[in-house]
Design a protein around this nucleic acid. Structure first.
Lengths: 109, 109
DNA sequence: TTTGCTTATTGCAATATTACGATAAATATT
DNA sequence: AATATTTATCGTAATATTGCAATAAGCAAA
């Protein structure tokens, strides 16, 4: 096969894993942090900052957009990208739940 | 090409993205949550709980082990898997930093 | 030591990802 | 209108991932 059998898993697992997967590439984490660092959302400069070609960056941005980790709004000639706080929050909450359940549990091996 | 040019990115981005990538599959999230739910670490039953074959589960476990999200200790016949709190904590901290920076920033588009 | 049980590995097919050159599409400027 | 600028898409090659049947490897009893 090759494709993951996502129909066998819960919607929450499918959604969360898609978000994690989108963050599962150093370039996409670098894009995320760049968007965080830069004050304005004007974002053609991502290509200048990250050592990958313009088409590749565009593709990575698309993947981040697909899971709604970022939003992009057209602004004249260029496109302004910025982070979507909601999705980051969702991810934070999910990991936080795992963490606290784990701490409460304290059965190790 | 095809392989990601990880040598172009910071060690932190490489490490964090590897952890995220390991969680970027519904089966691996399901494994994680199962380990969290079950009180004992005795874990041959993952195969019974998740609708994938034994070799596939074994492979997913290996990926989680590679990034140290889980630990596995041999226990007689079987292997006992459990979560590694440190890595979960690390992930939580990383996302938390992004989140709080984002909140403090409040420049949207 | 043979048998059974549990987990890992191998080999392979199907599919997905990564990366980029070439090119298109859309808007700005001249 | 012609040109420049910016971003997206297409096409393609290289590599990685996903999944499983078959099989190996390791240990526990009998």
């Amino acid at each position: 096969m090759g494709a993951s059998k996502i129909d066998h898993f819960s919607p929450e697992h499918v959604e969360m894993s898609a978000i994690m997967k989108a963050l599962g590439h150093p370039a996409r984490l670098a894009i995320l942090e760049h968007l965080l660092k830069v004050d304005s959302c004007v974002c053609g400069d991502i290509v200048d900052v990250i050592p990958l070609s313009q088409p590749t960056i565009s593709q990575h941005l698309k993947e981040l957009k697909t899971v709604a980790l970022i939003k992009g709004t057209v602004e004249g000639n260029s496109v302004c990208y910025c982070l979507n706080e909601n999705i980051i929050e969702k991810l934070f909450t999910y990991i936080g739940n795992i963490k606290s359940t784990l701490v409460a549990k304290s059965s190790y091996c």
